[in-house]
Simulated assay, not measured.
Amino acid sequence: MMRNGVDMERVKTLTDAMRKDPAVGRRTLSGITSWNGGAHSTTIVRNFAVPADEPVVIGGTNRGPSPTELVLTGLSACIAVGIAYSAAEEGIEVDLIEIDVEGDLDLAGFFRMRRSTGTEHEKTHRVFEIGDTRPGLDEVRLTVRVDADASREKIQELVDRAYQRSPVVAALMHAVPVRVCIGWEETRAE
């Protein structure tokens, strides 16, 4: 049975199998990224090509969303999926899910700069020095709109449940270890 575009029979089959054997639910997600020059790259994930680039103002060519914008996209899409699944599990029909997502980013961290703590003139003119400004998002805000055959309280519950079950939220909120290995290609000297 389809509910909110979710194949509930497949979900039930998977969750039943996971109850019998938790290993059934474990997955390794993967992709391969190829650099296209400058700030532009393409990642192949399953059968999808996902471009990434930076805006022209910071030296990119604007041929795709920035990697940080893709993080925000992943977050809001994951919350939307969680709302749709939570509603489907409860038999609630959803007509609309829209999420505005925004995050605050200080590019000084990427460029390995820190804000000066000097004079008022320096602070006003945003003088930078080489330093330790943290790269990454300082805060992310989501505004969620849901139109469904449910009370406001139930919609709030669905949104809260989507937030709590989101793998992307969990990755952003908790320190997920990131291990980087270098793969060397063997070359023969001739």
Rank of each mutant, 00 (worst) to 15 (best):
R3D: 03
V6C: 06
V6I: 13
V6K: 01
D7S: 06
D7P: 08
R10W: 09
V11A: 08
V11S: 13
L14G: 08
G25V: 05
R26I: 15
R26D: 14
R27G: 12
L29H: 14
G37Y: 01
A39H: 01
A39V: 09
T43S: 08
I44V: 15
I44K: 15
A49P: 05
A52Y: 00
P55H: 11
S66V: 02
T68W: 12
A77G: 12
A77Y: 02
V81P: 01
A84P: 01
A84G: 05
A84W: 00
A88R: 01
E90N: 07
I97P: 04
I97C: 07
D100Y: 08
D100L: 11
V101A: 07
D106E: 10
L107A: 14
F110I: 06
M113N: 05
R114F: 03
R115K: 11
E120V: 14
K123E: 09
K123R: 14
T124F: 04
E129Q: 02
G131H: 02
T133K: 02
P135M: 04
V140E: 03
L142V: 15
L142M: 13
V144I: 14
A148P: 02
A150C: 00
S151G: 02
R152K: 14
I155D: 02
Q156G: 11
V159W: 00
Y163S: 13
S166A: 13
V169P: 01
V176T: 10
V178D: 01
R179A: 01
G183R: 10
E185N: 11
A189S: 12
